[in-house]
């Protein structure tokens, strides 16, 4: 079974009287364990597509299936449940809840899932160590650098045990060293845990990591090809 299937997905935005095309008949099939980058210039529809796949936004045409579930047939609560159990999100910035510590942020989704305190804590600490933040568990987001905050977000996205991680410009606010570090981490998690990654980016360095590169333009998929991954150099 495919991890994600998009069939002729359309999304149009209304801005005043103007109609803006977000997605124009996008069809895409993603297999479990893929490491896929969505690329394309700003405004090409990457975010809109990720939001639609992540059940945050409802397309006005076409059909999306995630893990075998057709999103169009689910209620608001069921969509929330799907996001909670199966999808991990990493946004461009402001990923964390400011009043919670790094550990509590990582535990957040697991706690909503209803995991026991001991289990949560063990997983959270393991994940924070995996993203290189051992020792910073008690810090609040304001006491962490941008790169560290993104890594907490990655730890949270993976800790809840999702099948699919959606990352929207995860390196946009990071320096090249932090970017390389984060992408290495994605690649490692993908390899070790078999989690499917879909990463929207217009950073060529990030695209290099992908085994499959999907190019978008004006809301359409204009290229979809396999490639040999290439890591960024750490300077």
């Amino acid at each position: 079974m495919s991890a994600v299937v998009c069939e002729a997905v359309c999304r149009t935005f209304h801005q005043g009287d103007a109609l803006i095309t977000g997605l124009d008949h996008v069809s895409l099939e993603i297999q479990p364990g893929e490491f896929l980058c969505l690329s394309g210039p700003s405004g090409s529809g990457k975010t809109t597509l990720l939001n639609a796949i992540g059940a945050l936004d409802t397309p006005d045409g076409g059909e999306i299936t995630v893990g075998g579930q057709r999103l169009g047939s689910l209620s608001r609560a069921e969509l929330a449940e799907l996001r909670l159990r199966r999808i991990g999100f990493v946004f461009q910035a402001y990923n964390l809840i400011p009043v919670l510590t790094a550990r509590e942020n990582v535990e957040f989704v697991m706690q909503v899932q209803g995991l026991s305190a001991a289990r949560r804590r063990a997983v959270a600490d393991e994940m924070l160590a995996a993203v290189g933040l051992a020792g910073l568990e008690e810090r609040r987001p304001a006491q962490l650098s941008g790169g560290q905050q993104q890594r907490v977000a990655v730890a949270r996205a993976v800790a809840s045990g999702p099948d699919l991680v959606l990352a929207d410009e995860p390196t946009a606010n990071l320096d090249s060293h932090s970017s390389a570090h984060l992408m290495d981490l994605f690649e490692q998690l993908n390899g070790e845990r078999g989690v499917t990654f879909v990463i929207a980016t217009h950073d060529p360095g990030v695209m290099g990591y992908a085994r499959r590169l999907v190019r978008m333009l004006d809301g359409r998929v204009v290229a979809d090809e396999a490639q040999t991954p290439q890591r960024m150099a750490h300077e």
Binding site: G54, L56, R76, A77, A80, E81, L82, R83, L84, R85, I87, F89, F91, Y94, N95, I97, P98, F108, V109, V112, Q113, R156
Partner: peptide
């Protein structure tokens, strides 16, 4: 507003 949206994205239901 932002973090409420974030919590929703992370799977917290509207009721929660």
């Amino acid at each position: 507003v932002r973090e409420i949206g974030l919590m929703q994205a992370l799977g917290m239901r509207p009721g929660a």
